[in-house]
Write a protein that binds this DNA or RNA. Structure first.
Lengths: 228, 228
DNA sequence: AACTATAGGAAACACTTGTTCCCTAATATG
DNA sequence: CATATTAGGGAACAAGTGTTTCCTATAGTT
């Protein structure tokens, strides 16, 4: 019965030591502008979006307020709403910016390999690297969107699926390249292995957020057994 | 320059067809109670928490309002705050409830195997199964917490890490069991393989949320190559 | 049987949120 | 040079948030 468990002394909460909101709102009030007002700022929208990406990645969509965005992007509220229809539109723009950047990074990391097998190894190593340290702690916007929004936001859900499928296709392509150049055995099931590797890469970002240490060399060495 | 990109016509938003909030708030107003007030309800706190788990898993912490919780748990606002200090405390209780349940499911799935190798296969198959369908769409509360809260909430971050490490230890144990009973070769690096498998399991939940189809048999067959 | 304590409910509260509105000053145009 | 336009800012707004408070009717006690 519920009244057996509910007590006036708040039974379920005695284990909680600190209270929830920890960081955030250090300088919510926008600092006084030093330049003459009306004078256009000296940065482009991409840098502003990069800053938005940082906030969205770290806190997620719902925990990021317009105030957080304006201070991060160094724009006033009105300016944000002149550039974007609403918060959701800012998020989508940030998402696309993030995806473009990450795709470039991943592809160029892979490109350094001599054959298909090496390109795959490089890609995995790059993923581990990005899942660690401060970037790892900040998190991946694709993973964050998948987890936080896919169930409730069909637009984001579609973007996320599309992104995962693109990545999976890229990996499957690398496997086939490796099979063509002889660095990966023919009997490896390209599509299944690619899907599992997508799981690995996304899982790396989750584990990286939990601050577990990730030894790239060793983890990738194990993962490469999937290509045996 | 920012003014090159900012237009009064809202440049960045023309691709967005539907507007954001899609589901939620179908019956926010609590339905009139049919029973005499003051009469204790006929369910225990665990079922109420299970309902909370569903909401938190699906929408995440920040997107779940107290209103969502009260309708889901079928409790009035005051009752929730009599049982828990605040929303955060409800979340922690739901988290622990979820973890206990999932742990039981995973262990009992693994236990059906005859040797270490089979127990590992069963565990992986169970993870794939739980990452699919409606449960997959709802999502894993551990993954969700890791992604949404680990960076800003030290309490949740600690719970998540602890959970991942427990799981990893369990997997490493299964590997060692397999090595002892001869079903897994001695040269397999138990700890590294376990950490990679944690990535796979967490990644499965991410991919499952994105509604990509997951063929358990085939995916696990590929993953088992890690034990070669 | 009268009384006390309290489980459970719902309205009120203070605050934050996303969004809009309007002002100002610099640029571009004629 | 005078005028129209608009980038950018920030105050004001309404709706939603988490939380508190108080009420009521039951359950347990003497």
């Amino acid at each position: 019965m519920i009244r057996d468990l509910i007590t006036t002394k708040c039974l379920y909460s005695e284990t909680i030591i600190p209270y929830y909101p920890v960081m955030q709102k250090t300088a919510r009030k926008s600092q006084p502008i030093a330049r003459p007002p009306g004078r256009p700022r000296e940065f482009d929208m991409d840098t502003a979006l990069d800053r938005a990406v940082r906030v969205f990645s770290e806190r997620g969509y719902h925990a990021t307020s317009i105030g957080d965005l304006t201070t991060a992007m160094r724009l006033a509220t009105g300016s944000v709403y002149k550039a974007f229809r609403d918060k959701h539109a800012v998020f989508l723009a940030a998402f696309e910016r993030y995806v473009a950047l990450r795709q470039e990074q991943t592809r160029s990391a892979a490109a350094k390999g001599a054959n298909g097998r090496e390109r795959l190894r490089n890609m995995l190593l790059s993923y581990v690297a990005h899942s660690q340290g401060s970037e790892g702690r900040r998190g991946c916007l694709v993973v964050g969107s998948a987890v936080e929004l896919s169930a409730v936001d069909p637009v984001v859900a579609a973007l996320v699926s599309a992104r995962l499928e693109t990545n999976e296709g890229f990996i499957a392509g690398l496997i086939r390249e490796g099979q063509a150049d002889g660095s990966i055995p023919r009997h490896v099931a390209a599509d299944d292995t690619a899907r599992l590797m997508i799981c690995i890469t996304q899982g790396l970002r989750v584990v990286g957020k939990a601050r577990l240490s990730l030894d790239g060399k060793r983890l990738v060495a194990v993962a490469m057994k999937l290509l045996a």
